[in-house]
Amino acid sequence: MEKGKTLIVIPAYNEQNNIRGVIGDIRASLPGADILVVNDGSVDATARNARQACGVKVVDLPCNLGIGGAVQTGFKYARDHGYDYMVQIDGDGQHLPGEVTRLAAAMAAAGSDMVIGSRFLDIRSFRTSWQRRLGIIIFRCLFRLLLGLRITDSTSGFRLYNRKSIEVLARFYPSDYPEPDAIVLLHKHGLAISEAGVAMRARESGRSSITAIKSPYYMAKVTLSIIFACLRTRW
């Protein structure tokens, strides 16, 4: 990976216990990449801990925008600073920086504009709850039906984007639960999407943002926005 060409974006909300480990892992496996931490209005020491890692850029958002708003800040930074590639690695330590090479290989092989790190392409990673699997299966059917795309893990945030994708997503990025929407968005802009099988880690501390109470809302909201993203003719 060439120096100064790839930006790693770490969206982080109250990840003071994980953030330095994540940065350390990225440094170890991807020494050539620049790191941008987007601190999404955390109330803990996330920003301070991130700044202690030398050479890491930290954007402090004045209020909590949610994952979509945080990641889009990364897209805007990557666009404005002329990066060719951007990788999203979540601040909770779930995504393994060592797997980025798989994403890069898949992008080179498929000639795609975005590569999704999928937990389900070849099964060698951890199992999620059945509710989550059910949701993912529903999305899989939706994508096949509406776009004719084979996407096994549409909710994965572990992704590699090229310059074209960065430019599109810096302008339009969905606000909450953005991952499935973003696929439709890029597809609608004529960009190619592929997947690479990756391993992921179970979270080290903190909880998933999607709780049992929120998951029906999550399903409804994401399904609706996928359908709308398909129907939208003007961006």
Binding site: V38, V59, D60, L61, L65, G69, Q72
Partner: peptide, 13 residues
């Protein structure tokens, strides 16, 4: 509001 917050964060950096 979202766009403003992002711009503000980037400008601060």
């Amino acid at each position: 509001n979202r766009a403003l917050s992002q711009e503000l964060g980037l400008a601060k950096l």
